[in-house]
């Protein structure tokens, strides 16, 4: 059953339409990522679900109840903010206990549940500290503990990891996933980082210009993007030119479907100095540059007037001087047909 459901939601700010007829179901216990470039409406959608914004049209349901006119404080949500929004005048324990205090939970019960929540985020013993005495990662854990201690129906995360440096971010991703599984709470998070979305979420929704473009499990969306925007936004995509040049260059061969557009992922391509006999698809190109980045290397190749990327382990990419002719081959199964250009 869907714990949270959004149906036909439209949100306008004056002349600007931030959300345009968006419908989405968030399954119980799922980890859902809302992904999109800035201005796509992903944060607006999160704030509509939270109750900070009341949409002009559409329904929002939490646990089956229509809530689109219910204020934030009555929605039983947990929310974590980008800057964590910890109360600076309160201690860690008072921060985490705030939601319980507001609900008039007994002091003994409050102490027990705050202790449990701090254990869960591995901050036991730091209850007496002030937020300013904590590191960025610790603050984030406090914010998470505070958001889940009231047993909310849904946990909303607004760019939760963007304020952390890269190494800490990867640790926190694993940690966040662990805690979410342990608590089993329906979680919706907003991010512009596609890698983060693919790592954490079991379902993702892609937004663009206030519209939901595509939703589904990450692998499905990655392997079968509905349009060229999604193909490019989620990972890298090499698009075949439309229309294709007629005739194709000598030695080239393509086996395509009737779809509106076709793309190939950089990691699916094989690069060779000469034509590859076994390749089901083969195109000639000119090597523009070769970039070494540790374990992986990237070649930029000009193909049929487009600029393509080839990514492979460094030793699997031949060392060739720039501006030499190269051949790119790939299997038929690696061509991604795209319905909408």
């Amino acid at each position: 059953m869907a714990e949270v459901s959004v149906a036909g939601v439209t949100m306008r700010f004056g002349e600007m339409t931030a959300l345009d007829d968006v419908s989405l179901d968030f399954v119980n216990g799922g980890f859902f990522a809302l992904l999109g470039p800035s201005g796509s409406g992903k944060t607006t959608l999160l704030r509509v679900i939270a109750g900070f914004l009341f949409p002009q049209a559409g329904r929002v349901r939490i646990a089956g109840q229509p809530v689109e006119r219910v204020p934030v404080e009555k929605r039983e949500i947990g929310m974590m903010f980008q800057n964590y929004a910890l109360f600076p005048n309160l201690t860690v324990a008072e921060n985490v206990g705030f939601g319980l205090r507001v609900r008039h939970v007994s002091r003994a019960e409050e102490r027990r549940r705050v202790g449990e929540a701090l254990d869960l985020v591995q901050l036991s013993g730091l209850g007496a500290r002030r937020p300013r005495e904590l590191s960025g990662g610790q603050r984030q854990r406090v914010a998470l503990a505070r958001a889940i201690v009231t047993n909310p129906k849904v946990l909303l995360l607004d760019e939760p990891l963007s304020a952390l440096d890269k190494a800490l971010r990867v640790d926190m991703q694993i940690e966040l996933k662990r805690i979410q599984r342990e608590v089993g709470i329906t979680t919706i998070f907003v991010t512009h980082d596609q890698e983060e979305a693919l790592t954490l979420a079991d379902r993702i929704g892609i937004l663009r210009d206030g519209r939901l473009v595509q939703a589904g499990p990450p692998r499905e969306v990655y392997n079968a993007p509905i349009d060229t925007f999604t193909a490019r936004f989620l990972g890298e995509a090499n698009l075949l030119p439309d229309p294709l040049p007629v005739p194709l260059p000598d030695g080239a061969r393509l086996s395509l479907t009737s779809a509106a557009a076709h793309a190939v992922r950089p990691e699916a391509l094989t690069l060779s100095p000469g034509p590859i006999a076994a390749a089901e698809n083969l195109l000639p190109g000119r090597l523009v540059s070769r970039v070494f980045a540790g374990s992986m290397a990237t070649c930029i190749v000009a193909v049929l007037g487009e600029t393509w990327k080839v990514v492979a382990r460094d030793r699997d990419l031949p060392q060739l001087p720039e501006n030499t002719e190269v051949w790119l081959g790939w299997a038929r199964a690696d061509t991604i047909p795209i319905d909408r250009a």
Partner: peptide, 18 residues
């Protein structure tokens, strides 16, 4: 003053007066 502090308190169930 960071307005998200007010938003965080509301999300935790605090009414306007609280």
């Amino acid at each position: 003053f960071d307005i998200t502090l007010e938003e965080a308190a509301r999300a935790l169930g605090a009414g306007p007066w609280t």
